[in-house]
Design a protein around this nucleic acid. Sequence first.
DNA 1: TATTGTTATACTCTATAACTATA
DNA 2: TATAGTTATAGAGTATAACAATA
Lengths: 164, 164
Amino acid sequence: MTGPAATRDELSIVDALAQLSFLIHGTLERRASEHDLSIIQTRLLGVLRDRRPSMNELARLLGLDKSSVTGLVDRAERRGLVVRVPSTEDRRTVLVSLTDHGRSLVSQASAQFEADVSTLLDCLPPSDRDAIAGLVSRVLVAHAAARGVDLFATVGTQGSPTWP
Amino acid sequence: MTGPAATRDELSIVDALAQLSFLIHGTLERRASEHDLSIIQTRLLGVLRDRRPSMNELARLLGLDKSSVTGLVDRAERRGLVVRVPSTEDRRTVLVSLTDHGRSLVSQASAQFEADVSTLLDCLPPSDRDAIAGLVSRVLVAHAAARGVDLFATVGTQGSPTWP
DNA sequence: TATTGTTATACTCTATAACTATA
DNA sequence: TATAGTTATAGAGTATAACAATA
């Protein structure tokens, strides 16, 4: 209905992107678990790389209920990956900050994951890789624009990626 | 290290694919939850569309421990989405089969998800969509071949996609 | 009164280990 | 003895509702 069926050696665009997504998601899951991290724990550490948000802001950034974030941060704090710091401005507020250990862990996991994705693309010549990057960027920019977001304004000041 | 940094309006190939993966994964999650399905429940129903596997085979297909599959199938059966059928060949074996309700649910969720991904690509002209499909297919085929799998031999007889 | 965060509770998902029934 | 599946148990992750402390 939505497009041509797959031929002998090419998937439909929908199947191709769906399979690629599962492949990349699984790669991240595997790399994270080598450090005993789940995907959500990795995302938690990821968003803390260039932020020191309150529990409330964290809930919004991760798309979770605040009570879920309490448990998430509890477990990460118990492992020494993050610390809770009382805010000096509002005594109701708790800020969450990465420890050196947490930063080291997320840096390793990210670097390995990026290497995995790079390796996955080794079968393509550089010109084809650039072509994919350009086309996918257009899709992402259009999608972000459709919800009133500038994709490039959301990247942290140090340029850390927005995906983990 | 692994490639050029992102420029003003284009992401690096790794960032682009990682973000796209999270976007597509989130889309599937949202669509599934409209039918009160988790991603793993959707995958369960998906693999049953053209198979009637034993619990053991199901565990292998989903990459889960057999005890996890017991609970998964319990909950799906309680909702009337699947049924357990005793095997006539081996009285230890239990086969799992989709009910009409389960089939209807997974068909709706899949169709909506495919439409979502199609919509996401509306910003590209058909020639660019074909280009992405071709390039991504090459990546997936190369990856499958590297682990000794023929990507196109794994698709079910009715051609249902392998991703859900 | 409104907001921030935690607690209590319940459910899904996952794995390991022990168990039952069958081969 | 080996295999198929379930049960017991433990823990992560999630949400809703009720709560305490602060604004």
